[in-house]
Protein backbone atom coordinates (compact mmCIF):
# COMPACT_ATOMS: atom_id res chain seq x y z
CA UNK A 1 0.00 0.00 0.00
CA UNK A 2 1.53 3.27 -1.13
CA UNK A 3 0.95 6.27 1.13
CA UNK A 4 0.02 9.46 -0.72
CA UNK A 5 2.63 11.32 1.31
CA UNK A 6 5.88 9.47 1.77
CA UNK A 7 7.73 9.58 5.07
CA UNK A 8 10.85 10.60 3.15
CA UNK A 9 8.96 13.66 1.86
CA UNK A 10 8.10 14.68 5.43
CA UNK A 11 11.74 14.22 6.46
CA UNK A 12 12.83 16.40 3.53
CA UNK A 13 10.44 19.18 4.62
CA UNK A 14 11.90 18.96 8.13
CA UNK A 15 15.40 19.24 6.63
CA UNK A 16 14.19 22.27 4.65
CA UNK A 17 12.98 23.94 7.88
CA UNK A 18 16.42 23.37 9.47
CA UNK A 19 18.05 25.25 6.58
CA UNK A 20 15.53 28.11 6.57
CA UNK A 21 15.82 28.44 10.36
CA UNK A 22 19.61 28.66 10.17
CA UNK A 23 19.06 31.19 7.38
CA UNK A 24 16.80 33.31 9.59
CA UNK A 25 19.32 33.38 12.44
CA UNK A 26 22.05 34.35 9.95
CA UNK A 27 19.79 37.13 8.57
CA UNK A 28 19.32 38.44 12.08
CA UNK A 29 23.09 38.41 12.65
CA UNK A 30 23.72 40.05 9.28
CA UNK A 31 21.06 42.72 9.79
CA UNK A 32 23.28 44.42 12.38
CA UNK A 33 25.63 45.58 9.61
CA UNK A 34 22.99 46.21 6.99
CA UNK A 35 23.47 49.27 4.79
CA UNK A 36 22.90 50.25 1.17
CA UNK A 37 26.56 49.96 0.41
CA UNK A 38 27.72 47.40 -2.13
CA UNK A 39 31.01 46.69 -0.40
CA UNK A 40 29.30 46.21 2.96
CA UNK A 41 26.64 43.99 1.35
CA UNK A 42 29.05 41.64 -0.42
CA UNK A 43 31.27 41.35 2.65
CA UNK A 44 28.29 40.71 4.92
CA UNK A 45 28.99 36.99 5.20
CA UNK A 46 26.15 36.12 7.59
CA UNK A 47 23.70 37.71 5.13
CA UNK A 48 25.16 35.85 2.14
CA UNK A 49 25.27 32.54 4.01
CA UNK A 50 21.68 33.19 5.14
CA UNK A 51 20.53 33.66 1.55
CA UNK A 52 22.40 30.52 0.51
CA UNK A 53 20.81 28.56 3.35
CA UNK A 54 17.37 29.83 2.29
CA UNK A 55 18.00 28.82 -1.33
CA UNK A 56 19.06 25.31 -0.27
CA UNK A 57 15.88 25.11 1.83
CA UNK A 58 13.67 26.10 -1.12
CA UNK A 59 15.42 23.57 -3.34
CA UNK A 60 14.81 20.76 -0.81
CA UNK A 61 11.17 21.85 -0.44
CA UNK A 62 10.54 21.50 -4.17
CA UNK A 63 11.93 17.96 -4.18
CA UNK A 64 9.88 17.11 -1.08
CA UNK A 65 6.61 18.42 -2.53
CA UNK A 66 7.00 16.02 -5.42
CA UNK A 67 6.46 13.04 -3.15
CA UNK A 68 3.46 14.11 -1.12
CA UNK A 69 0.31 16.11 -0.65
CA UNK A 70 0.72 19.86 -0.16
CA UNK A 71 -1.96 19.97 2.55
CA UNK A 72 0.08 17.44 4.56
CA UNK A 73 3.62 18.66 3.87
CA UNK A 74 3.10 22.42 4.14
CA UNK A 75 2.08 22.43 7.85
CA UNK A 76 5.40 20.76 8.70
CA UNK A 77 7.07 24.05 7.74
CA UNK A 78 5.83 25.34 11.11
CA UNK A 79 8.64 23.32 12.70
CA UNK A 80 10.90 26.23 11.69
CA UNK A 81 9.32 28.22 14.55
CA UNK A 82 10.56 25.55 16.94
CA UNK A 83 14.10 25.50 15.52
CA UNK A 84 14.31 29.30 15.44
CA UNK A 85 13.27 29.48 19.11
CA UNK A 86 16.05 27.09 20.09
CA UNK A 87 18.67 28.67 17.81
CA UNK A 88 17.85 32.18 19.10
CA UNK A 89 18.45 31.03 22.66
CA UNK A 90 21.77 29.41 21.74
CA UNK A 91 23.19 31.96 19.28
CA UNK A 92 21.34 35.24 19.82
CA UNK A 93 21.14 35.01 23.64
CA UNK A 94 17.37 35.38 23.60
CA UNK A 95 15.32 33.80 26.36
CA UNK A 96 12.75 31.04 26.37
CA UNK A 97 9.46 31.91 28.02
CA UNK A 98 6.57 29.75 29.20
CA UNK A 99 4.63 31.05 26.18
CA UNK A 100 7.32 29.83 23.81
CA UNK A 101 7.43 26.38 25.40
CA UNK A 102 3.63 26.18 25.23
CA UNK A 103 3.77 27.25 21.57
CA UNK A 104 6.34 24.57 20.75
CA UNK A 105 4.18 21.95 22.45
CA UNK A 106 1.03 23.06 20.59
CA UNK A 107 2.87 23.08 17.23
CA UNK A 108 4.03 19.50 17.90
CA UNK A 109 0.42 18.61 18.67
CA UNK A 110 -0.69 20.29 15.44
CA UNK A 111 1.71 18.50 13.11
CA UNK A 112 0.94 15.20 14.85
CA UNK A 113 -2.75 15.78 14.05
CA UNK A 114 -1.84 16.50 10.42
CA UNK A 115 0.27 13.34 10.25
CA UNK A 116 -2.37 11.12 11.80
CA UNK A 117 -5.10 12.89 9.82
CA UNK A 118 -3.44 11.99 6.54
CA UNK A 119 -2.74 8.47 7.72
CA UNK A 120 -6.18 7.66 9.08
CA UNK A 121 -7.70 8.38 5.67
CA UNK A 122 -5.21 6.05 4.04
CA UNK A 123 -5.89 3.36 6.59
CA UNK A 124 -9.62 3.76 6.11
CA UNK A 125 -9.38 3.38 2.35
CA UNK A 126 -7.10 0.39 2.85
CA UNK A 127 -9.68 -1.30 5.08
CA UNK A 128 -12.46 -0.45 2.63
CA UNK A 129 -10.49 -1.84 -0.29
CA UNK A 130 -9.79 -5.02 1.62
CA UNK A 131 -13.51 -5.42 2.42
CA UNK A 132 -14.46 -4.82 -1.22
CA UNK A 133 -11.98 -7.44 -2.35
CA UNK A 134 -13.36 -9.95 0.13
CA UNK A 135 -16.91 -9.28 -1.05
CA UNK A 136 -15.91 -9.69 -4.71
CA UNK A 137 -14.15 -12.95 -3.97
CA UNK A 138 -17.19 -14.18 -2.12
CA UNK A 139 -19.44 -13.23 -5.07
CA UNK A 140 -17.16 -15.07 -7.49
CA UNK A 141 -17.21 -18.10 -5.27
CA UNK A 142 -21.01 -18.16 -4.93
CA UNK A 143 -21.41 -17.69 -8.70
CA UNK A 144 -19.15 -20.65 -9.40
CA UNK A 145 -21.24 -22.93 -7.27
Amino acid sequence: MLLKTKISAILLVLLCTVFTSIGQVLFKTGSKNLALNLHLLITNYPLILGLLSYAIGAFILIVALKKGELSVLYPFISMSFVWVSFLSVKYLSEHMSAFKWAGIFVIFLGISCIGFGSKSREEKSKIKRRADKKRNNKNKWTKKN
Binding site: P75, S78, F81, S85, F99, K100, A102, G103, I104, F105, V106, I107, F108, L109, G110, I111, C113, I114
Partner: peptide
Protein backbone atom coordinates in the same frame (compact mmCIF):
# COMPACT_ATOMS: atom_id res chain seq x y z
CA UNK B 1 -3.13 23.95 16.74
CA UNK B 2 -0.34 25.28 14.52
CA UNK B 3 -2.05 28.69 14.38
CA UNK B 4 -2.28 28.69 18.17
CA UNK B 5 1.32 27.53 18.56
CA UNK B 6 2.73 30.18 16.24
CA UNK B 7 0.73 32.87 18.06
CA UNK B 8 2.05 31.67 21.42
CA UNK B 9 5.68 31.64 20.23
Amino acid sequence: FILTGVSLI
